[in-house]
């Protein structure tokens, strides 16, 4: 490899990560040195700091088991059913520490998570799912939001009274996204929204997401396996490995980074696709930390 891989926090002075620097005034979400344990014994996330600026789309990338989903669950306050706890660090949203808040308070303050695998209430109809998304708002706002979602996803209009468990994967993702948007969140967190979907649907979902950010000013924190796709729409990217943030930079620079290209996109320097065996071998050989 050409030289040591650059460490994001050293190369990018704009990033407000580890060293406990004060958040820039526009940061909506700010994680500082967050440490998460499962069962009080297994350290799932170590010393993670990341910041999401208002109105931006931030991608959180990493291999399976890197701790991305755990970070999202911590922000939403739903680690406790799995015996997870935030042991160290702070999670600030809009200037308030939300680490000790109840999940419903976090939703009310404007953070909504679309969990991995869509997780619809599959015995409920499409409309009932959407109504649940607007549970924290008033009845009238929910009714308005409902119309807005049907405008946004016209395909759902004809399916509003279908049981959501029997929808196609793409339609289910639309319901999951629509359900999250019912409460008009300030920060929308998406956990692998394209998992198991057809390329055409993926494109549709991504254009919806970028429209939300660019046109409606929603802030998005996106976790994706498909790094290239995620970086093509993101304003900033973080890369996690083994429970730590190992790199963070602008998408342009991340995409130019040879290690990222090798590790996540499977391209060699020449741009030729490597076969999986090489990538796997590479993975074993090379770790940024540890």
């Amino acid at each position: 490899m050409s030289g040591a891989p650059p460490r994001g926090r050293e190369t990018d002075p704009a990033s407000t990560t580890a060293e406990g620097m004060t958040a820039t005034s526009s940061a909506l979400l700010e994680l500082t040195n967050v440490q998460i344990f499962y069962d009080k014994a297994i350290e799932a996330v170590r010393d993670v700091s990341l910041s999401v600026k208002k109105g931006s789309l931030v991608a959180l990338l990493g291999a399976n088991g890197a701790g991305k989903t755990t970070v999202l669950k911590a922000i939403s306050g739903i680690l406790f059913p799995e015996d997870g706890t935030v042991e160290g660090g702070t999670i600030e949203f809009d200037g308030k520490n939300i680490a000790a808040m109840e999940p419903d308070e976090i939703v009310r303050s404007g953070i909504v998570l679309v969990p991995e695998g869509r997780q619809l209430f599959d015995t409920l109809t499409v409309e009932e799912n959407l109504i649940m998304g607007g549970y924290t708002t008033t009845q009238r706002n929910a009714a308005e939001a409902l119309e807005r979602i049907y405008d946004m996803f016209p395909a759902l209009t004809g399916r509003r009274h279908s049981v959501s468990g029997y929808l196609s994967g793409g339609e289910q993702q639309m319901v999951a996204l629509g359900r999250a948007l019912m409460s008009k969140p300030k920060l929308l967190m998406l956990d692998e929204p394209t998992l198991g979907l057809a390329p055409q649907i993926i494109e549709e979902i991504f254009s919806t997401i970028s429209a939300l950010v660019r046109e409606e000013g929603t802030t998005v924190l996106l976790v994706e396996q498909n790094a290239q796709l995620a970086l093509s729409v993101a304003d900033y990217g973080y890369i996690m490995e083994n429970g730590r943030v190992v790199l963070d930079d602008t998408p342009e620079r991340l995409l130019r980074n040879d290690d990222i290209c090798e590790f996540y996109l499977g391209f060699s320097d020449a741009g030729a696709r490597k076969n999986m065996r090489d990538v796997k071998h590479y993975k074993r050989r090379k770790r940024w930390l540890s």
Binding site: G77, P103, F121, M132, Y135, Q139
Partner: peptide, 23 residues
């Protein structure tokens, strides 16, 4: 009723119900 639907939602997927802000 909203609370009635919420009951079915909690019965279906409790953690996801938390994510909707259901107490």
């Amino acid at each position: 009723s909203r609370i009635g639907i919420a009951m079915r939602a909690v019965a279906n997927k409790e953690t996801v119900a938390l994510l909707m802000g259901i107490r």
